[in-house]
Design a protein around this nucleic acid. Structure first.
Length: 446
RNA sequence: GCCCUGGUGGUGUAGACCGGUCUAACAUGUAGGCCUGUCGAGCCUACGCCUCGGGUUCAAAUCCCGGCCAGGGCGCCA
């Protein structure tokens, strides 16, 4: 019932189309008619003259309505506007020194395409801060804030740079299934789903698929979601994340570490150069790491930590406080290499001379793990041995193992967390800030 | 799951330690009014809040217990 009366107030978009983005309206167009569309910002009514700011994805433009020059119907329409409503304005461009950008539009027609209700759950202009939880509940509105917008433009740039990087180096972009039949890796927590009459799982990583694809495409990369059913509750873990995964034939750990190094430096440089405007509202100074990144062995890391008063027994993973400590001891981006085999998954290649250690690496940035990778096993016999050692049944991996009998080449690769990378690029201290609609232990909406 | 901290109008905060003076303050917002150059407009008026349940007390936003929720620290994270 409210709906019908509200709809009565609304205008149709009809055949009207935008001729200019708000920032394309310049004083050069003075005297010309333009059609701009966007969201209503501040409305200022001075009695004899009314102003409102119209914002679109490019920026904003002021719409000015002097009583003497604009009809009563239009003035009434401006009175009825609410913050964040969607409007179309047809009008004449006027150069004016007093206008915010030296140019404004005198309206001849205003169409209220959709009226925003009041009050909104948060202020998208950001004058009054809102808690992260409140913002995530109204995420699409929150994304109109300049800080949020800046974060996702930077994320977009990182993704674009990464894609360009791989494509210019002969990588083929692939999409592997996210619905998988078995829990392929150890006792890792996977989300079970119902797949017709069978149980299936959400993929935890494209690992096995990308390895197999090196046998045909040689160099592959994938940008896609990974799902982990771990009950973690931290500012750097989500249950759905985006991973940039690569796998390269005829390569070993050091080769893909160089690729990763190059990629990181290129992404940081691009963001620093092309997203200077976006970094400003985030108040973030981006430091481009220098190549080559420091290689710290697992053993060296333990020694450094012990000297700093943090004891980690050999053969154990670095607990969070140890990771953070190491991040203080070794600044910027660095690799931790030569991990004990027991800490790495079954497909990890052992070091030839010291088989207790692996050819696996982690890329760290100030204590935060951004990527992990290494040389993979390509010989079936060794892989079966490792499966058994991890107490996995090789029979469950038959469809995977058959590829190794078809002459799968030696290969190496890594998985890089796009969300964590974006955290570092934007200075965000909570991973939820850099994900449009984050999925964590308690949140599955919006 | 554990530990710490918190929950006050639509939003963000103050008040709490030391119960009464709280008929709950400030900002933003919203509604109305004045104003023909505002630009985080200004001025005037109004509207709207103590997380839920229990307890202590003459008296609870304030103290105690529990629930729920959130933030941080861990754990978990092949």
């Amino acid at each position: 019932m409210h709906l019908s009366s509200d709809c009565m107030k609304l205008d149709e978009l009809g055949n009207l189309r935008r001729t200019h983005l708000s920032t394309e309206v310049s004083s050069k167009l003075a005297g010309k008619e333009v059609v701009v569309m966007g969201r209503v910002g501040d409305v200022r009514d001075l009695g004899g003259i009314k102003f409102f700011i119209l914002s679109d994805i490019s920026g904003s433009i002021q719409v000015t309505a002097p009583k003497a020059k604009v009809g009563k119907k239009l003035l009434a329409k401006i009175d009825g506007l609410t913050q964040e409503s969607a409007v179309a304005v047809r009008g004449k461009v006027v150069a004016a020194k007093q206008a915010p950008r030296g140019v404004e539009v005198f309206p001849s027609e205003i169409r209220v395409l959709n009226l925003a209700s009041v009050p909104l759950p948060l202020d998208p202009r950001g004058r009054v801060k809102a808690n992260l939880d409140t913002r995530l509940d109204a995420r699409a509105l929150d994304l109109r804030r300049s800080e949020s917008l800046a974060i996702f433009k930077i994320r977009h740039q990182a993704l674009q740079t990464a894609r360009n990087y791989f494509m210019s180096r002969g990588f083929i972009e692939v999409n592997t299934p996210k619905i998988v039949a078995t829990a392929t890796e150890s006792g890792a927590a996977l989300f079970p789903i119902s797949y017709f009459e069978r149980e299936a799982f959400l993929s935890q990583s494209p690992q096995l698929y990308k390895e197999v694809l090196t046998g045909c495409f040689e160099r592959v990369f994938e940008v896609g979601p990974i799902f982990r059913a771990e009950e973690h509750d931290t500012p750097r873990h989500l249950n759905e994340a985006i991973s940039i995964d690569i796998e390269v034939a005829y390569a070993a750990a050091e080769d893909v570490m160089k690729i990763l190094e190059d990629l990181i430096v290129e992404v940081f440089s691009d963001v620093k150069r092309k997203c200077a405007e976006e970094l400003k509202p985030l108040n973030h100074k981006l430091e481009v790491p220098k190549k080559p990144f420091l290689r710290v062995t697992y053993d060296e890391a333990l020694k450094k930590l012990e000297r700093a008063g943090v004891k980690v027994p050999w053969g154990e993973d670095l607990p969070t406080p140890a990771e953070k400590k190491l991040g203080e001891l070794v600044d910027g981006a660095y690799f931790v290499v030569d991990w004990p085999m027991i800490l790495k998954p079954f497909y990890t290649m052992p070091k030839k001379d010291t088989p207790k250690l692996s050819e696996a690496f982690d890329l760290m940035h100030k204590g935060l793990e951004l990527a992990s990778g290494g040389t993979r096993i390509h010989q079936e016999e060794l892989l079966v041995k490792q499966l058994k050692q991890k107490r996995l049944n090789p029979q469950g991996f038959e469809s995977h193992l058959q590829n190794f009998r078809a002459g799968l080449p030696p290969h190496a690769g890594f998985g890089l967390g796009l969300d964590r990378l974006t955290m570092v690029l934007t200075g965000a201290d909570n991973i939820r800030e850099v994900v449009l609609f984050p999925r964590d232990r308690t949140r599955i909406t919006p």
